[in-house]
């Protein structure tokens, strides 16, 4: 297997009863790439994310991450292996502060147990301090350091999205899955997001897979993309090729437009 492939899925299929949500999704993500997963509503994009991150156990197919078989592992194991994600409908820990949200993300890499802090062991204090500092740095990266003590649910929408990314980064992932990061953002914010995603990719040595509806963002940022429609991969390739692919246009705009293309 190619060493530079971070994630390779083969024939991922998800059936709910009689309904096939995703059928035979096969993709390979090269290290350091930014890849897009697009398709109309209900095409099965989030289902793919859920299969990759262990929330769904695929009916068929395999998931190999950095040479390790992940198929069937529970979500927390997948995260420990190095895959972090955000959610389409932002899922922060609303009652916790901004800083605590990021610290929770660090927990998966934490070594000392709670007993160490009950017995006031110096190692526990040291690690706690290190986690706190690193979390603050991450908040700085996403531009939320000044809000560290705010309650997460009180943040404005855009800030919540960025906090969710900071929290995902705290788990020290190699692969970051972003589920509609630009949803609800205005054009300027979307433009900033493009720079931001590239920046964290470089800074944290990440591979990024993102689901997005905003075509401008996808076309600009992605090096490669997969297009799903009714759970089936209908196209794959570089943005330019996808843009002129009649099947894709048909899926998005309906048949009559496809004929004109």
């Amino acid at each position: 297997m190619n060493k530079d492939i971070v994630l390779e899925t083969t024939g991922l299929t998800m059936r709910f009863g009689g309904l096939t949500a995703v059928s035979g999704f096969s993709a390979a993500l090269p290290k350091g790439s930014i890849t897009g997963l697009i398709g109309p509503n209900g095409a099965g994009k989030t289902t793919c994310f859920n299969m990759i991150t262990g929330f769904y156990k695929p009916t068929e197919g395999r998931n190999v991450f950095m040479g390790r078989e992940l198929t069937g592992l529970p979500p927390h194991e997948v995260c420990r292996a190095g895959i972090a994600r955000t959610f389409q409908n932002i899922r922060l820990f609303g009652n916790e502060t901004v800083l605590e949200n990021v610290m929770i993300g660090s927990y998966v890499r934490q070594r000392s147990s709670w007993l160490a802090s009950v017995f006031c062991l110096p190692s526990a204090f040291r690690e706690d301090k290190a986690i706190r500092e690193r979390s603050l740095q991450l908040l700085d990266v996403v531009g939320l350091a000044h809000l560290e003590n705010e309650q997460a649910s009180s943040l404005p929408y855009g800030a919540q999205r960025r906090l969710e990314i900071a929290r995902a980064l705290a788990t020290r992932p190699s692969l970051l899955l972003l589920d509609e990061p630009a949803a609800g953002m205005n054009p300027q914010e979307t433009q900033d997001l493009i720079g931001f995603i590239r920046q964290i990719r470089d800074q944290f040595d990440l591979t990024v897979l993102l689901i997005e509806h905003d075509m401008k963002l996808v076309m600009e940022i992605c090096e490669h993309m997969w297009v799903l429609d009714y759970g089936v991969t209908i196209a794959e390739g570089a943005p330019a090729a996808i843009q002129s692919n009649p099947k894709v246009i048909e899926a998005y705009l309906g048949e009559e437009y496809a004929c004109d293309a």
């Binding site: 929330f55 420990r80 916790e96 949200n101 802090s117 705290a170 788990t171």
Partner: peptide, 28 residues
């Protein structure tokens, strides 16, 4: 002490959103 440690943060995270906690690598 338990709740003040990061483990305490994780417990509260489970209370707030179990799914998100799992995605953050927490063995809920």
């Amino acid at each position: 002490r338990l709740l003040k440690s990061n483990t305490g943060n994780v417990l509260k995270a489970i209370r707030d959103d179990e799914t998100a906690a799992k995605a953050m690598g927490v063995n809920v």
